[in-house]
């Protein structure tokens, strides 16, 4: 899609209106109790998973580097935010956003520390080093006093309460919207092009003046930052965290969302993260087969559509409208 077309402004407007409408509908059904607490929770989880999947997609789909420890960044963010709000004197409405910023920062620092050795080199070292990071960070959280070891942290306050059942949902929703928007604009900027060119051919990108180490680091650290924030929201949403919640399986779950939706497709990640969060909950009775179903779906996908649901394509409502209008116009001119 060419970003410089005149219609871009209209597209932005349509999308903004649609997002606002979606939010209004959801917040009304939540606040009126039409959607009960259980479903509101699932919706919030879906939004958190969207943020995680989109951020992982930046590294794995758009930069083209495999990450096997995304849950590790989530863990760092979850503990950072929870420890801050638990120990802070500030009221939660103030402490929570500050906690989220800390989540992102701590996760980003981890990203810098493990990214530097892996990303300075050409090749796929990131997969191994992030795999190690995911495991090590969990062992650390299991053994530190401040994280309360394997018991984890309890009684992390949620913003949602009886009077305001949609507070956490609102946070998750706007974080997801902002992350998705920024991801779209990033990919379609000079920096995004640089990142994609590295996926396409690292040697050629370097020879064209792209500082590959810088852009690899940037994408990876940004993804870590966003995953950290998702972790912070998650901690306050569930109220109880322990290291086992952020294990290798969690990392794989996020990765599956990205692969299933299509590596490099942000809308693909949004769809698959939503489906893979909501579907298992609706099929609660089968939840013990979740990993099994996941693997079967993945194998089928690899067999029949190896590039994922959407491949590298994006779908958008304005885009669909545009295609529809074009079709109708063509039909009309055909009739004449």
């Amino acid at each position: 899609m060419n970003i410089l077309k005149k219609k871009t402004g209209v597209y932005y407007l349509i999308n903004a209106v649609l997002v606002a409408a979606l939010f209004l509908v959801l917040i009304i059904v939540i606040n009126t109790g039409t959607l009960n607490g259980y479903y509101t929770d699932i919706l919030t989880f879906a939004l958190i998973n969207i943020v995680l999947a989109v951020s992982l997609n930046l590294v794995t789909g758009i930069l083209g580097q495999l990450v096997l420890g995304h849950a590790g960044f989530m863990l760092v963010g979850a503990y950072a935010a929870a420890l801050f709000t638990k120990n802070s004197e500030l009221s939660l409405t103030v402490a929570f956003p500050i906690g989220l910023v800390l989540s992102g920062l701590f996760a980003a620092i981890c990203g810098v520390v493990i990214g530097l050795p892996a990303l300075r080199l050409r090749g796929d070292y990131l997969a191994i080093i992030t795999l190690g990071f995911g495991e090590i960070i969990r062992v650390i959280a299991n053994n530190l006093k401040i994280t309360n070891g394997a018991m984890g942290l309890r009684g992390i306050d949620s913003l949602s309460n009886r009077n305001n059942p949609g507070a956490m949902f609102t946070y998750a929703f706007f974080i997801a919207v902002v992350v998705i928007f920024l991801m779209f604009t990033f990919v379609r900027s000079r920096h995004g092009r640089a990142v994609i060119s590295i996926r396409e051919d690292e040697i050629a990108a370097e020879s064209m003046g792209i500082n590959t180490t810088y852009y690899k680091m940037f994408a990876f650290v940004l993804a870590a930052f966003i995953a950290g924030i998702a972790g912070g929201v998650y901690a306050h949403h569930v109220g109880v965290i322990d290291p086992a919640k952020f294990d290798f399986n969690r990392s794989v779950e996020i990765l599956i969302m990205v692969v299933l939706g299509g590596m490099g497709s942000i809308t693909g990640s949004v769809i698959s993260a939503s489906v893979l969060t909501i579907l298992p909950e609706l099929l609660r009775d089968f939840s013990q087969y979740r990993m099994l179903i996941y693997s079967v779906i993945l194998i089928c996908l690899m067999l029949f559509k190896p590039s994922g649901l959407l491949g590298r394509y994006e779908i958008s409502v304005p885009g669909l409208l545009h295609a529809l209008i074009k079709k109708i116009k063509n039909k009309k001119s055909g009739e004449v």
Binding site: R190, R193, I196, S197, A204, A205, M208
Partner: peptide
């Protein structure tokens, strides 16, 4: 850059 457009190849 195979999966990029011709124009984007140049813009990189």
């Amino acid at each position: 850059f195979k999966n990029m457009t011709v124009l984007d190849n140049i813009k990189v």
